[in-house]
Structure formats: C-alpha cells, structure tokens
Design a protein around this nucleic acid. Structure first.
Length: 512
RNA sequence: GCGGCUGUAGCUCAAUGGUAGAGCACUAGCCUUCCAAGCUAGUGAUGUCGGUUCGAUUCCGAUCAGCCGCUCCA
C-alpha cells in the first residue's frame, strides 16, 4: 500500500488555502465581485451549493425523517412586526453605542464607568499609555471605559435587524409632509415624528428562524396531533446587521440556519438539554475526519441570555481558535409566554394523561418549555471544508503530491466521476453509458475525459469526489472497470453492472 | 466603527512615472493504456472613482473589498 503522508498546515495559512480552493474550484465566490464585492456576502457556486445542500439534507434527515417526534416548517422570512416586539428583538437589537472622540473606542453607555456631570476629569490625549494629559468637564453620567475621556459622540442606535417596507406605496411623501408640518419642533421631537412614520410601515427580515416556530406552535401541534415532547424543525435564511463581519462565511449579515425547537414538559428541560447536546455533537462528529475538533461548552452565567436557564455552545476548533458552531439552549417558556401575552392567544398544551393535583381530575394544562438546538448551516459548510482540507506529500518518488478534500461521501458535491482511460477505442462511449446510470439513479456524477488520467484523479481529489470509475481496454473483455478511492488512492476492479450498487453501499455507510 | 497591513490573469507571484511578465490553470490540436508527462498554438490582469503629470498600475485623496488587532456579537 502506498504511504500517504499529510503535510501539516499552520493555522495562520489554513483559511487562505481553503478560501483559495473554494474560489478556484467553484465552491464559494464573493458576492457581486465584478462590482467590487459586497461586505461579507458570499455566493455558493456549483460545488458549494451541493455541499451546503447535502449538509442541510443530512440535518433534515436526522431531525425529521429519522424520528417520530419532530415535524418540519418553512415559514416566510417576513413576519408581523409584533413578532419581533414580543420576542424582544426590536428592543435588544438596537442598543445605543457611543464613540470616544479622544481614543476612538466604541462602547455601550450602560457598561461604561460612571461619572458626575460637571466634574473635571483628567485623561491622556489620544488614549495612549503615556502622553500629554488633558482635562475636560464631564457632560453625561459616564466617561470612555478605555481612556476616561468625557468628550463623546452622541448616543447612536444600531439596528441589528434589516428594516424594509411592506406595500408598494412610497412613504417619501408622507415623510416630507411630517417634516414640513413640524418645522417648529426640536430635533428630538422631529426625529420621533419621522420614526413613527417609519415604524408604522416597517417590516423586518427575520434575525432567526426560531420565532416562526413559536408563533405557529398551536397550528402545528393541533394539525399534526403532536404530543409533548415534540419538536419543530426549520432551515432557512436569517439576516443580521452584524457590527463586525468576520472570518469569511463564519459571520455574515445574511446566513442560513438549521433550527429545532423541541417542546417539553416544564421540569424535564434539563434532561432534554443534555440529550440534544449529545445528539448534536454526535451528528457533527459523524461526518468529520477529526471528531476531537468538536466540543460542547456550557455558558457561564455572564454569557447566558436573559431567556435561557442553561445553554451549551457546540464549538469547533477553527484556525482562529474554539468558536461557536451551534447553540443548544434551554429557553424555558419565555418565547411562548411572550407571544401569548402580546397576541392575547392562549398558547398552552393540554396533557390529558396527567392528573391535575389541584382538581383531582385528569388533564393538565401548561406552557411548554423549549430546548433549542440552533445550528449554523453556513458555518457548517466552513467547518466541514476545514475538516476535509488536507495536503499530502508524493506517495513515492516521481509522483505528485496532492490537495484533497476528505469530505464524507454523502457531503461530497460529486459522488462519483467516470472516466475513459483514453479518449478513443470506444472508451468514451462506454464511460458515458455508465455515467448515465448514475444520472438516472439521482446520484450526482461527473463524466470527465480531459487531460491525462492522473490529472483527472487529482482534480477530483481536490473537490472531494470519493470514487472514480475508469473504463479501460479490459472493460470490453470482461465488463469491468476500476474503482479508485479518494482517501487511499487505491483501486480495484469491479463489474460494470455492480458499479451503481457499490457506490450506493459506500454512500449508505454511517461512519466516516 | 477605530488602528495597522493589503488589493496586478482563474490561482500563486514578478516588474515599472513611458509597450505589464512568469509558473500553474484554462481552450484547441497532436501524443498518451492508471495518478498533475511532452509538443504546438491560443484566451486572459493593475478593485472603483477622482487628483497631480505630457504620460499613473506606480505618487496623492476618496471609496469598495479583504486580512490582523480592538470593539461588537440579545
């Protein structure tokens, strides 16, 4: 057997290499590139769309098809604005921020050091460690947390939800009229008047898929006769005006989520949280070459969101360190309760099998608690690309090293490539006949006759194609082809009529 | 949003105030019976806008985008 020696790649170079491969081989392109690109927006090319879709299909399979207690949902991205009022996103997503005019620090006023208005304070010019000292009067009840300077920009709100407007009528006229009518007002009052026009017409692109599952809880539970515990699964795009976008597709303003809301009886949330944490960790590791690169980390009390009583982050060891991939949160009954209060609709579950302690009769009514495993689909794409990317030294003298994507066969964009050894003697025709069988079976396959055979193997290694079938002279004598394995570079002969089954069998293997 | 660095062909990189070059890749053809062989020919680039200049890819400014750090990330 050939010895395949992997070249170790420093973390500092890994992202560059993966990004470059993704562009070169049609996985991921920058959005609107010919216009100079758009901040943190990326397009999934012909191979990227396959990888992303394969990951999402595997998630759907594990969440919905392979269990009885979860059903699916595909909600609209635009929802009634009251949804976001009730969920708290409208308020929380617009924290005021302030810039320090001295050291350029940006911070939240509520987290800044307190000070007395009118007091004189000393600070270093430019915010450096040493330098000329200056004094100034405190105007507000806080100073810059970095340099202590009281000279600050106005408090500004940063809306983290994308606002848009429903309805074809342009509100420009209305706005002009409001401004015109209120000429005498102060700036603050005018701002409020304009804001109210905007608010009245605004809808928002969802910042998470979760809320639709809470809002449709009753419809789904009743129409499908679901009994608690049960879950609702949804995949789709969400949008956030992130202050800082980072690390390629890791944090972008438009991203794709795979979320499960799993409703449980109050009091059982802890065990279900543990259950889902383990399930999700297992799921990620199933498709990975390096399962040890995934871990679950419990949130510290400081990190915990206001709606959660406990939360795990499923983290991956990215080239920049451990970072989030999925959050598995115990959200209590916060969301259902909020929507119940805001809408006036009683969102409860009636369990006829439990005895009511108070009345002694059968049947208990309660607001379910929810466990939320919320995964990043686009983050998963990055994670599996990083996990799969490898470079190898030449297996022996005179041969070539290679770059290989060791993707799980079910995640790989092409499942199989079919080649004629050379472009003559009827080999292309036979190879095309074989590839046609895969087309008809719905297995994504690629016919390739360009360049020499070795180059074709290596090109398909680079995009993660797990199996290559090659027609040669012998194929016409005994109806066999060679199957060549991506991970080992080994090959063996199989009967042509068995080729489809051999590939199918490899694809159905659970473990990587 | 701040600070630092960066932007030349699909990729990796070179050069210059005066005709922008290579390797790889790609295309066509020849050759080729299992791991990036060879030969011939070919396509293809200075992120965008503006300024200085006789002339700017080079100098300056703005802008867009990327990387690193800070900040942010209910």
């Amino acid at each position: 057997m050939q010895k395949l020696r992997e070249i170790s790649i420093p973390d500092s170079e890994k992202m560059q290499k993966v990004i470059s491969l993704c562009k070169r081989r049609g996985f991921i392109f920058q959005s609107s590139e010919i216009y100079g690109g758009l901040k943190s927006a990326y397009d999934y090319g012909p191979l990227g769309v396959e990888l992303k879709r394969n990951i999402m299909n595997e998630w759907w399979k594990a969440m919905v098809y392979q269990r009885e207690d979860v059903v699916g949902l595909d909600a609209s991205i635009l929802m009634h604005p009251k949804v976001w009022q009730a969920s708290g996103h409208l308020a929380c997503f617009s924290d005021p921020l302030v810039d320090c005019l001295n050291c350029k620090e940006r911070f939240r006023p509520d987290k800044a050091p307190r000070a007395k208005p009118g007091e004189e304070v000393e600070f270093v010019e430019g915010g450096k460690k040493r330098g000329r000292k200056r004094r100034a009067l405190v105007e507000r009840d806080y100073v810059c947390p970095n340099c202590g300077c009281p000279e600050l920009s106005p408090e500004r709100h940063f809306h983290l939800m994308f606002r848009t407007f429903l309805g074809p009528v342009d509100m420009l006229e209305e706005l002009v009229e409001v401004v015109d009518r209120n000429r005498g007002l102060s700036r603050a009052e005018l701002k409020e008047a304009v804001a109210s026009v905007l608010e009245r017409n605004s809808v928002y692109l969802r910042p998470e898929t979760a809320q639709a599952m809470f809002v449709q809880f009753l419809n789904i539970q009743k129409s499908m006769s679901m009994k608690i515990p049960f879950g609702i699964a949804q995949m789709g795009k969400s949008f956030r005006n992130e202050v800082t976008v980072k690390h390629y597709i890791f944090r972008s303003c438009e991203f794709e989520q795979m979320e499960l809301e799993f409703f449980v009886e109050p009091g059982t949330q802890e065990e279900w949280l543990e259950y889902w944490k383990e399930e999700r960790l297992k799921w990620y590791r199933k498709f990975a070459n390096r399962p040890e690169m995934f871990r679950a980390r419990e949130h510290t009390p400081q990190e915990l969101a206001h709606y959660a009583d406990k939360c795990y982050d499923i983290e991956y060891r990215y080239p920049w360190g451990w970072d989030e991939l999925e959050g598995v949160a115990s959200r209590t009954d916060y969301d259902l309760r909020k929507h119940s209060e805001a809408s006036g609709v009683k969102i409860e579950y009636f369990d006829p099998t439990k005895k009511n302690e108070k009345t002694g009769k059968m049947g208990v009514r309660y607001t379910p608690y929810v466990i939320e495993p919320a995964a990043g689909a686009t983050r998963s794409v990055l994670v599996y690309l990083l996990d799969a990317y490898a470079e190898e030294e030449p297996p022996e003298e005179g041969k070539s090293g290679r770059t290989v994507l060791r993707l799980h066969p079910r995640l790989a964009p092409f499942k199989v490539a079919v080649f004629p050894l050379v472009k003559k003697d009827g080999m292309p025709e036979l190879a095309r006949k074989i590839v046609q069988e895969f087309f008809e079976a719905g297995i994504h396959a690629k016919y390739d006759e360009q360049h020499a055979i070795g180059r074709r193997y290596l090109r398909h290694d680079e995009v993660g194609t797990p199996f290559c079938l090659t027609v040669d002279g012998q194929s016409f004598e005994d109806e066999t082809v060679t199957i060549r394995y991506r991970d080992t570079r080994e090959q063996r002969r199989i009967k042509i009529r068995e080729a489809l089954d051999v590939v199918k069998k490899e694809l159905s293997r659970e473990e990587k």
